[in-house]
Design a protein around this nucleic acid. Structure first.
Lengths: 249, 249
DNA sequence: TACATACCAGGTACGGTGTACGCAATAGCG
DNA sequence: CGCTATTGCGTACACCGTACCTGGTATGTA
């Protein structure tokens, strides 16, 4: 019951004893460097220690286990969502849209981030800053905090879901070591065998018509994001200011 | 270059040799049983073989590696999205909404499914059936195939993203073995320390006001889903039938 | 200044993982 | 009745996370 079981509450530099030979931030940066270059599965405590020029077990002086390494990686990169200088737009929808695009930009730079962040609760300082910023954009609209949380939760859900589906294909290739051509060949020949049964008319149209007017990933991301924000805006307009989104109980 | 490097193209029962002692479906069911009961990380080739009463290396006669075990698990459970009997509703939005709720229902039954499915391209028979069904709901609206794919992609992105965020908390507790009270205590005391700086007014309001009108997970899911479908419907109404969503290039 | 204390560094070891390889047994075709 | 493709699976290897322990070091206290 020391009260310091939480990573973010634990002081980085204790009062007594010799000073640590590197910082938590350096540890996080090293892990991010590895994951960016070789993928998330390349991160092992030994590999990470080697990158830092330290012994493997020394890492456990900085972190209780591998999970906290991931926590540090996530919170550090989440910090990239929020450029310090820029003032957020006045309109809440523009603000959330900008935030969504920044999330997508940095997540594509760190392809390991999306699945990692989606799987664990966000509790670090940058995640807190992100939430504060997002909620702040909705201030003054007459929404309750619960309504605000529901709203930004919906937008982030879409953003994370879209990015993961966008990355699934390319990450799958990297993980399996196949080329795009190999994968497409295997997948397509299977789809063709399904179509041959006659029970898949839409897939048949897909193989024949798709790609002629190919929709870029950017545009697809924008499409869903804008439709979602439109729908939210419409529902805010509909209620005069008395009732909110999904307020229940 | 056998042409059978794809799991779904590879015949389950080759022409020659002794017959396998269990089926691919049995393998998938065993894996699903383990993951449901003990979590995804409990699945190992040894554990799975034990569940099937087979030798560890025998599994590799059915599957090229662990990745294909996951592929089988995903496609098998994706089959639960689609109840055989039910005729889909006439309205496309009602159809997608129903599908979304079915996805959510089965994904909550199999908490390991969402992160697993999000990380890999869907190529199995049930995934194909799902896509065919979803696209079929949009038939007759005058959309191109690319537009349909963009549309259902947006809805699925939201659904998967939401479910993952919904599961992150509870799965995190299971993985770390903490109780909800322990986690909340640690997290809250950190949030409090942030609030004490005075730089987090929205988080301060959150700790003071949130939960008084608590929004249930069901309602939050419905909120984003309905707003997204509303926004899509509005954009379809806006264009007379000549132009589509996010058609570019 | 001397010492106790609290912390750092990291080697060793253990139980687990995925899977490459090889060999014996078997079912179906010619 | 072989021939051969295929199954079942034991062994072995490299790698993983991390518990435990020893030894050195910087700081607070007397």
């Amino acid at each position: 019951m020391t009260g310091h079981e939480n990573l973010w509450m634990r002081p980085e530099r204790p009062a007594r004893g010799p000073r640590p030979s590197f910082s938590r931030a350096a540890l996080a940066q090293a892990a991010i460097r590895i994951a960016d270059a070789e993928g998330l599965e390349a991160i092992s405590m030994r590999r990470l220690a080697a990158e830092l020029g330290a012994g493997t077990m020394s890492l456990y002086r900085y972190v209780t286990g591998k999970d906290e390494v991931f926590d540090l990686m996530v919170d550090t990169t989440v910090g990239e969502y929020l450029p310090e200088d820029r003032r957020p737009p006045d309109d809440w929808a523009d603000g959330l849209r900008l935030l969504a695009w920044q999330v997508r930009r940095t997540t594509l730079r760190h392809p390991w981030l999306a699945p990692l962040a989606a799987g664990r609760p966000q509790t670090g300082p940058n995640s807190a800053r992100l939430l504060e910023t997002a909620l702040g954009m909705l201030d003054g609209l007459g929404l309750s905090i619960d309504e605000m949380l529901t709203l930004v939760g919906a937008v982030f859900a879409y953003v994370n879901g879209y990015i993961q589906s966008e990355l699934a294909e390319v990450e799958g290739l990297r993980r399996t070591g196949l080329t795009l051509a190999q994968r497409l060949a295997g997948h397509l020949s299977y789809i063709q065998s399904l179509i041959a049964t006659g029970n898949y008319p839409m897939l048949e149209r897909m193989t024949k018509e798709a790609g002629r007017e190919y929709t870029a990933a950017d545009d697809r991301f924008a499409y869903g994001l804008d439709r979602l924000l439109d729908g939210i805006a419409a529902s805010l307009r509909a209620r005069g200011g008395s009732e909110g989104p999904a307020s229940s109980r």
